[in-house]
Design a protein around this nucleic acid. Structure first.
Lengths: 149, 149
DNA sequence: GGACAATGTTTAGTATGCTAAACAATGCCA
DNA sequence: TGGCATTGTTTAGCATACTAAACATTGTCC
């Protein structure tokens, strides 16, 4: 059927997996009213509540406008609240609401359930191998982004 | 800094890589005026020109509305042309334009360049290992989607 | 042959993600 | 102190991707 070389490449596989992984995460997270991507924001805030948006964006590796949008819908959903910093009116600090703190414990469970699904039949050794290979790919991609040769 | 277990999981790594891979693909493809995702449509049509949108969507594993949007912008960009099927007015068949056929040869080069970047320091053996591991993840995810236990 | 089901595509609405440009507040420095 | 650069966030506009619902055409079956 699909004899084209692209279909047998690591890159193609990676992008398909990506799409599937996102879809699965969405499906699991929807149950607790959280969207894929937002769970990372919640985890980040659980570790340090009241971060500035710029800090948050930096840690999550997303652009500030992306975070603005995500926070808008999370604020509308009652998961977070923004308050301006007392000293510097430019920075807006983000805080978890009680509703978010209730949801929080489920996030880790869900995250683990997704992993269990995705990497089900891989042995611990294989998972480690995969991790180290992916890690190298990750570094290739980050250095490709910054240092243009 | 980020001591949270999520940051050391295969799933987290996968989603970060995903984002980076897409960004890199976009950067490379923009040069020839094609957006990430559209290159797969072009490859598919290069193999079989004049596919119905539903066929195309099936092969690319995207939903029909997704394809509608992508084709709209590609049609606007002069890369493809839609013509209604002679026998069945419901189906619209998609054809490459001469412009697309000029771009086509570059797509493979670009695709390879991206792969070379992403998997640069992996030996052939390691690439094979990665491929087979990812393939298993892929199957876990596709079976997770269809057959809900 | 006319109602109704099935099939193919589009529209509407929402999510993530990006860039470029606008806007707001701060800080520096002459 | 008044102008200007820097920093933090938002807006506008576009890309992919999804679902649910609308719309058009076709085919079937009584």
């Amino acid at each position: 059927m699909s004899e084209h070389p692209i279909h047998h490449s690591n890159g193609y596989l990676l992008s398909q997996i990506c799409k599937l992984y996102r879809a699965l995460a969405n499906q699991y997270l929807d149950v607790v009213g959280v969207h894929q991507g937002q769970e990372l924001i919640l985890c980040e805030l659980a570790q340090r509540n009241g971060q500035a948006q710029s800090e948050l964006a930096g840690r999550l590796c997303v652009q500030p406008p992306t975070l603005t949008n995500a926070l808008n819908s999370m604020e509308k959903a009652g998961l977070v609240q923004r308050r301006a910093d007392g000293a510097d009116q430019r920075v807006s600090r983000v805080y978890l609401t009680p509703a978010a703190e209730e949801v929080q414990p489920h996030i880790n469970e869900i995250w683990e359930a997704i992993e269990e699904r995705a990497f089900a039949n891989l042995s611990p050794d294989e998972r480690t191998t995969l991790y180290s290979l992916l890690n190298r790919v990750y570094h290739n991609l980050t250095s490709a982004r910054d240092g243009e040769t």
